[in-house]
Amino acid sequence: MPRLTARERREAYQREHDFQVKTGKAFFPYAIFHDTVASLVTVVLIMGMSIIWWADFGPVPDDPEAGRAGGFLGPAYENRADPGTEEYDPRPEWYFFFLFQLLRIFKEPEMLLFATIIIPTLLMVLMMAWPFIDRRPERRVSRRPIAMVLAVATPVALMFLTWEGSKAPAVGAASDHPGAAAFANFQPCGTCHTLADAGTGGTVGPNLDTSNPDYATALAIIADGKGAMPAFKAQGLTDDQLSCLAGYIATWAGAQAGAPGPKAPTAEGYPDSCTAAGPDYAGAGAGG
């Protein structure tokens, strides 16, 4: 269909509107019946999900800070938020998984802005602007090839990203080098970073085995954060703990066949800082 003039457009709408009013049926009781059925189905689905969720709850824990387990639809609640330590899972609600997955695809620091800001903003702008971009009057999807492609590609892409995003990063066993256990288990680092020595496979942040930061770089970023990387000084880590993590990364990131990695000489105070940082940091091989 060709573009219409403003007047033709107005008249076409008026004609259609008159036709619908003339030949239509009253909202009440006809259309509202359908609406009520759809609403009831919605309410039943929501209650059904709640009941399935609840039916799988584990026992109420004695520890007032502990989480309560659940089944297939997830726990009733996890452990109480603890800004300091313990393992954690920075995963968002499922409908943000596709954004979360974008973070992993554009994980190089220079590219990260694409995932965090540029792509979501472009999508939002495109959505708002769409009726002003597609102004042809044709409504049948079979005659709107671009719309048809978008209508197929968007859900497929969203579902694919959501599915990929739902898979948790794989985690192996941490070595017993001082700091490895802290990196992998007591701090959330492994959720975002890959580091073979610590057995972690996170992909939100850079792969530390390949980026191989030296001690000073690592220390600054761990303490003060950068981009999506949280600032751990603000999370209450002591100077020894920060230094231990930085020293561990400088020494063991990119390690080959048990020999320390290329930046090992830059590590200051390692592994003594780990011994000073407390038992979670010292690890089995502390001091050696």
């Binding site: 954690y88 990260l112 800001i117």
Partner: peptide, 19 residues
């Protein structure tokens, strides 16, 4: 305000901060 809620929000806010 459980672990996941807290850390997901920290990350979300930090991501906003990179704009």
């Amino acid at each position: 305000f459980d672990q996941r809620a807290y850390w997901a929000s920290v990350v979300a806010i930090n991501i906003n901060g990179t704009a």
